[in-house]
Amino acid sequence: MKADWNTFWVKVVDATGETVYMVLVTLALSAVLGMVVGLALYATRKGGVLQNRVVFAVLNALINVVRPVPFIIAIVALSPVTRSVVGTMIGTDAAVFPMVVVATFGVARIVESNLLSVEPGVVEAARAMGASPLRIVLTVLVPEALGPLILGFTFMLVALIDFSAVAGTVGGGGVGNLAMTYGYLRFDTSVMVVAVAVLVVLVQLAQLLGNLLARKVLRR
């Protein structure tokens, strides 16, 4: 039974809404959490403003363990935790949880590496003015790295659209779920084409938005 496009487009719109919801909620949560972890990583490293070998080693190891795990495996591996935190393993909210976990550590690395690219001399200047470590992080490092940070977040946003589609194939809802249940399982090429087109458009929009913002901040 092929999709009847006179009525099926409603499902596409709903699925797109779900995907956007999953991606934006995940981005918001992982941006905040990842920022905190990334800043902690930067500040506690050797020579950092709050040098602490133990904290750094723990965070660093955690990231290195989580990051290489393929997302589809992470969803399955985290499912018991997902069930106890979200209360279910099916649907968009259940998909958001593993997405946040994985994205947080991705964002943390992006934040850390972009902060490291800020010239140490600028930090030294702020120290020489008597600024506290927290003030330096918030009013010097983050603003100085903002352009590349926005590009990093854009990269994450695009990755999240991909993640959401993967989550959709294992019961997470959204465009991925649509493509799986109607396109793949019923051999309906038209649904598959539309699903892919929607994802492409979403990715394009995300990239465009990120580039515009970054250009504004970088003034070029």
Binding site: E119, G121, E124, A125, A128, M129, G130, S132, V217
Partner: peptide
């Protein structure tokens, strides 16, 4: 206390070290 004292000592650098975001 040291941060307090640093506020009364100006410092100028070879590479200027200005904040590019400001």
């Amino acid at each position: 206390g040291r941060r307090q004292v640093r506020q009364s000592i100006g410092m100028v650098f070879q590479q200027f070290n200005l904040f590019r975001s400001r």
